[in-house]
Write a protein that binds this DNA or RNA. Structure first.
Lengths: 257, 257
DNA sequence: TTTTTTATTTCGACT
DNA sequence: AGTCGAAGTAAAAAA
């Protein structure tokens, strides 16, 4: 059976399901009125209220209220879950070491306890990241500039690794800094440091610095200009349709951008 | 009724519950085999698999697999949920504008659909942060030292902003560095820099530097001593029980705001 | 509204 | 196990 659910169970019955689910790697949700205590890197205390608690077989625990994307309390993967009944309450405890952290959820009222078997899996493919931007340029370096030839990614310099390194049509060294979205002054500073560092290595070759991002703020554009650096506007994804589609192509909605 | 649950429902029945729950502000969980498509700031595609989907009345949607703390896909608060049946699949769509983002979850198999009424609430009070420590001192500066008077927080200096700035009973300038837990040498170095910077501003006034934290390492204590700096032991929270209350004001700790 | 800063950030890659 | 940097960071505070 893929899902087991108890509706308003006695604590004792809930305990049985939790222990069984924790034991055989099922995912669990508990909804009810509870208090939460956390102590570890910080400390917190949450008074009684209705919350949804999710326990994953990898040791993750999440306590969600009816608001916000972030759990109001949580514990990261790698923790050990333990259920017990104490003082007439169902308690779920999640602990880990290094750092020492402990989360206690004490239910005084249980509305629902469910355990789910997760068997089918499939991985996520995300596009539009800085890595995508890099890939896009490596596939077609002319997007940066005609004649640009990348020679290395993450090339080490005295100022740290640069995103992309290569040479232009005139064989001058080119340092490229990639950002997946609109950039502020910090990116210009970073590129400045990289160019200075590479300039030390190739003193007579006129090292160029190019910032590649969808756009820049005005102040940053001025800063780049002052420092003799360049900017190329480029999105991580092509403006046309370059998506990772997947399933049946039922003629779904056209997408006027 | 606080919880409504459908076990392996027909899409049509699930749709009814979802629309009703979205309408009257209930929280929803759906477990089953689904695909997920996201398009917005980035794009992603998630093939078929078993996932737990949580829809909150504030517009949040979370898609969780059985691993990791982070949802594999999500939508932040403020989005609008919509359920429909298309191509024999139950689809939940969540959209928002600025930025334009859309998340589609298409279930081909539904194991469980539940709707929860969240009535009782209680706010979290995270204690033990540096901000708590600052508040605690601002409320009672004598915790640092009798006669200490804070005049500014985050006061700018040549070495950066100091946590707390003020004067002692003898009117000497005092720089206070706050740490919410046991500190190592870096905190002493930081305080040293601040004191040096402020000393430039008040050359003849004998600027004092005080590190406030629960405790220090031995080496750090020695370092402070060498440099003529001081240490005050203080926790971000009072030593007694310091609960985050919110609703019923059972007579616990007095919290003079 | 947009920008800046913080976080029990999370997460992955690398040492 | 610690360190560093990116993230569809999220969320709060400030501008």
């Amino acid at each position: 059976m893929s899902v087991t659910t108890l509706h308003r169970p006695a604590h004792r019955d809930a305990l049985g399901l939790l222990e069984s689910a924790f034991g055989d790697g099922r995912m669990v949700t508990v909804f009810g009125r509870c208090r939460v205590e956390y102590d570890g890197r910080a400390s917190s205390s949450l008074g009684p209220g209705d919350r949804l608690v999710v326990c994953k077989p990898d040791g993750t625990i999440l306590v969600h209220t009816d608001e916000n994307r972030k759990p109001v309390n949580w514990q990261p993967p790698g923790c050990t879950h333990q259920a017990s009944v104490r003082d007439g309450r169902l308690r779920i405890r999640s602990e880990r070491t290094s750092p020492d952290e402990r989360l206690d959820v004490a239910f005084e009222r249980l509305e629902q306890v469910s355990a789910y078997e997760v068997t089918d899996r499939s991985d996520l493919t995300l596009t539009g990241s800085e890595e995508d931007l890099r890939q896009r340029i490596l596939e077609d370096p002319s997007l940066v500039e005609a004649g640009f030839e990348p020679t290395a990614t993450e090339r080490e310099t005295a100022a740290g690794p640069v995103d992309l390194f290569g040479s232009d049509a005139a064989d001058r060294p080119v340092v490229v800094e990639l950002k997946r979205r609109r950039v502020g002054p910090s990116a210009a500073s970073q590129l400045t440091r990289y160019v200075a560092a590479v300039d030390e290595e190739f003193p007579e070759e006129g090292v160029r610095g190019i910032l590649v991002a969808p756009s820049v703020t005005d102040r940053t554009a001025a800063m780049l200009d002052e420092r003799g650096l360049e900017f190329v506007a480029l999105d991580p994804v092509g403006d046309g349709v370059s998506e990772g589609d997947s399933d049946v192509g039922s003629g779904d909605d056209a997408e006027p951008e």
